[in-house]
C-alpha cells in the first residue's frame, strides 16, 4: 500500500526523535534527552534496564567517562501502525577514551541498533520502549596526529556552537 502523507509526517517526527536522542547524548543535554521519551518508557540496554530517570542517571555517569562521543545514525527503518510504530535505527557510537590503566587513548566504536516501540500520545511521537542491541565493536588507538583541541570549538555542553541560533 502506498504511503500516505500522514505516514510521511509520522516518519519525519519519529526520525527527529532519534536525531535528538543522539544529539542529547553527544552534547550531554539531559533536558533534550528527556523529550525523547514518554514518562513511563522502559529502556533496556542489557547492561542497564530501567525507567527514564534511571537511564538519565546512568547516562550522566557513563558519558562522563569519555572525552567525546559521536552517535551517528544511518539506516532509519520505520513501520507506522496508527499511533504506534516499530523502528530500527542503525547507529555507530564512537566513544573516545582517554589513556588509562587499560590502554592508550583510543576510540571504542560500537555498531548498535536501537529497536523501538514509538507511541504517539497527545500528538507527540516519543519512545515508549527501547532496546539496544550490539552487533559488533572495535577499539582503535588514536594516532598522535589527532589533536583533540583542534576541533573547531566543538563542545559537549551548551557552549557548543550549534546552540547559538
Amino acid at each position: 500500500m502506498p504511503k500516505s502523507i500522514d505516514d510521511l509526517l509520522a516518519e519525519s517526527a519519529i526520525k527527529d526523535v532519534q536525531l535528538r536522542y543522539c544529539r542529547s547524548a553527544d552534547r550531554m543535554d539531559f533536558d533534550l534527552y528527556r523529550t525523547c521519551f514518554h514518562p513511563d518508557a522502559v529502556l533496556d540496554f542489557s547492561f542497564f534496564t530501567g525507567s527514564v530517570d534511571e537511564f538519565m542517571e546512568m547516562a550522566r555517569e557513563s558519558l562522563a567517562r569519555f572525552t567525546v562521543t559521536t552517535h551517528a545514525t544511518a539506516n532509519q527503518l520505520i513501520e507506522v501502525d496508527g499511533d504506534c510504530a516499530w523502528c530500527e535505527f542503525y547507529t555507530t557510537a564512537t566513544h573516545r577514551i582517554a589513556a588509562d590503566g587499560n590502554g592508550p587513548e583510543r576510540d571504542y566504536v560500537a555498531a548498535v541498533r536501537y529497536i523501538d516501540r514509538m507511541e504517539r500520545r497527545d500528538g507527540e511521537w516519543r519512545i515508549a520502549r527501547r532496546q539496544c542491541v550490539l552487533d559488533w565493536a572495535r577499539s582503535d588507538p588514536v594516532p598522535e596526529y589527532c589533536d583533540g583541541a583542534k576541533t573547531g570549538g566543538a563542545r559537549r555542553d551548551s557552549s557548543d556552537p550549534s546552540y547559538s541560533r
Binding site: 540496554f45 542489557s46 547492561f47 590502554g103 571504542y108 542491541v133 550490539l134 577499539s139 582503535d140 588507538p141
Partner: peptide, 21 residues
Amino acid sequence: LDDLGPGPTMKPGRRDAGDLS
C-alpha cells in the same frame, strides 16, 4: 582488531529471526 579492553556488555545482535528486533 586491536585488543584494547572490553566495552560495556550489551545484548548481542543476531543474524536470524531470533534477533531482538
